[in-house]
């Protein structure tokens, strides 16, 4: 018993170090003074953060990624909430099939989704890139919304809705006054997870960005192909700060286990 715990705690400790160290190194290199990334650093500067905000690709990409992530997450919630309500509260023949259709964007490889959408939406339908990109990210977010909200709805006693009907509220008002306030946490968790995944996405975004439509992750990817300076470290640190901030919100209001 003891030896097993000792062995697993040694492995666990090393694994945790391996998980943290690379990211910690990125943080350190963002302050280095040399023109190419080196570790350990010589000197200390904020120059690369300054440089980062001079790069239109990064600044615009950051804005655009924010906008797309917020709209796509909201769309996914707008479509997902009624669907989950129907899937968990109505008697539906072959409920599992419908559930799987709603989860299907998570079953098809993202890069395949990106390619298929590009062919059909951009080329055949002639939709603007921005709209196609939004659709791609909406599809990306939908399974997270469906999964988290289904768990939230199943935890909620169906009788409380009936109790509201009994004291005189119709089903629509009951939905807004009773159901929504009680799945608020799941909605928040679904939003955060959707946002992060949309904001970080590359495989779908890859096919639908262009000179007029910069997204942050693909901008970094492009930048890395030609440059190897600590600006990338600096932008990485900014991304980590965003992640950390969202995790703090999640931890404070929901508990982190809501996100997994």
């Amino acid at each position: 018993m003891k030896s097993k715990i000792r062995f697993s705690s040694i492995v666990g400790f090393i694994v945790l170090l391996l998980l943290i160290l690379p990211l910690a190194m990125v943080v350190v290199t963002s302050f280095g003074t040399e023109a190419t990334i080196s570790f350990p650093i010589k000197g200390f500067t904020f120059e690369w953060y300054h440089n980062l905000f001079q790069q239109p690709d990064f600044v615009d990409g950051m804005k655009m990624s924010f906008i797309v992530a917020i709209i796509a997450s909201c769309l996914a919630l707008l479509v997902g909430i009624p669907a989950v309500y129907a899937l968990t509260r109505f008697q539906i023949h072959r409920r599992n099939w419908f559930q799987n259709i709603f989860l299907s964007p998570a079953l098809i490889p993202e890069i395949v989704i990106g390619f298929a959408l590009y062919q059909t939406l951009v080329i055949s339908f002639g939709l603007p890139l921005f709209i196609s990109l939004l659709i791609g990210h909406f599809l990306l977010c939908l399974p997270y919304v469906i999964r988290l909200l289904t768990a939230g709805m199943l935890d909620l006693d169906k009788s409380i809705e009936e109790a509201a009907w009994m004291v005189g509220y119709n089903k629509v008002i009951t939905f807004f006054k009773i159901v929504i306030p009680n799945i608020k946490q799941s909605i928040m968790a679904a939003f955060i997870l959707s946002f992060i995944n949309s904001f970080n996405n590359i495989p779908i975004t890859l096919f639908m960005n262009g000179p007029s439509l910069n997204m942050l992750p693909t901008s970094i990817l492009n930048y890395l192909e030609n440059n190897y300076d600590p600006t990338v470290s600096a932008v990485s640190v900014i991304l980590m700060i965003i992640t950390a901030a969202l995790m703090m919100i999640a931890e404070k209001y929901l508990g982190l286990n809501k996100l997994v």
Partner: peptide
């Protein structure tokens, strides 16, 4: 419809509004 009947009901699970 149920919401117009003006009946009171007490549920097995109590069904209080948690919020």
């Amino acid at each position: 419809p149920v919401y117009k009947r003006n009946f009171g009901m007490v549920f097995q699970s109590y069904a209080l509004f948690p919020h």
